[in-house]
Structures are given as structure tokens and as C-alpha cells.
Amino acid sequence: MTLVVLLIVVLLLFGAKRLPDLASGIGQSLKIFKREVRDLTDDDDKKDATATTPAAPVPPAAATPTAPVVPAPVPPAAPVTPPVVPTERDTSDPRA
């Protein structure tokens, strides 16, 4: 009974013309969701398989000391000059 009422409400809200588009969109979304979930579980299975397989031993690094990394010198910054502010003239004398 509640399913019928729900279907009638959906039909009234979206209309008969938009229901097929809505249903196909939901179907495509579910298909993509299922594919992504399957891919994630496949990735987890691959990680588990590689984690159980022992890796080849890595040879130790060379015992020679390396020179420390020195950062490149930074050029000095250009001096900052204050902006030139025009001085206010006395506008009472028209000859100026």
C-alpha cells in the first residue's frame, strides 16, 4: 500500500515524461557505483597478494659519506622606496 502511494507521489512530482529519464539516470549511476566498488575490492585483493609475497632483499647503500646539500644563495632584495606623495600647494594665489 505504501509503495503505491509513494509511486503516485513520484509520478505527480516528476510527471510521466520525466520518469523514464530519471530511471535511466539512476540505473547508470548504480552501474557506475557497482563498477567502482568492484574495482576497489580488486585493488585491495592485489595489495593483499603483493603484501604476502616476499620482496627481493635490497642491497645496503654505499658507505661513502655524501656532501651536505647547500641551498643556492638568495639574491638581496631590491630596496623599497616610499611612494612620492605630491605636496599640496596653496591655491589661494592664482599666479602660482
Rank of each mutant, 00 (worst) to 15 (best):
A23V: 14
D93E: 05
P82E: 08
K46N: 11
P20W: 08
D21S: 01
L13W: 03
G25F: 04
A96R: 08
P79W: 01
A62Q: 09
V9S: 07
F14H: 12
L7E: 11
K31D: 06
P68F: 02
P71E: 08
R95Q: 10
V4P: 03
P75L: 10
F14L: 10
R95K: 12
P54S: 15
T2L: 10
T87I: 06
T41A: 13
V5W: 03
M1V: 11
L11C: 08
T52E: 04
P83N: 04
Q28V: 01
A77Q: 05
V84W: 00
A63C: 02
L6P: 07
A55V: 15
T41Q: 14
A51I: 04
A56W: 04
P65Y: 04
P57E: 07
P59R: 07
R38E: 12
T91I: 06
Q28D: 12
P75Q: 03
L12P: 01
D48F: 07
P73M: 03
T64L: 08
A61Y: 06
T66E: 13
A55S: 15
K34R: 15
K46M: 12
K17F: 08
P79A: 08
M1H: 14
P76H: 03
T50R: 15
I26Y: 13
V58R: 13
E88S: 04
L12M: 15
R18M: 04
A67P: 02
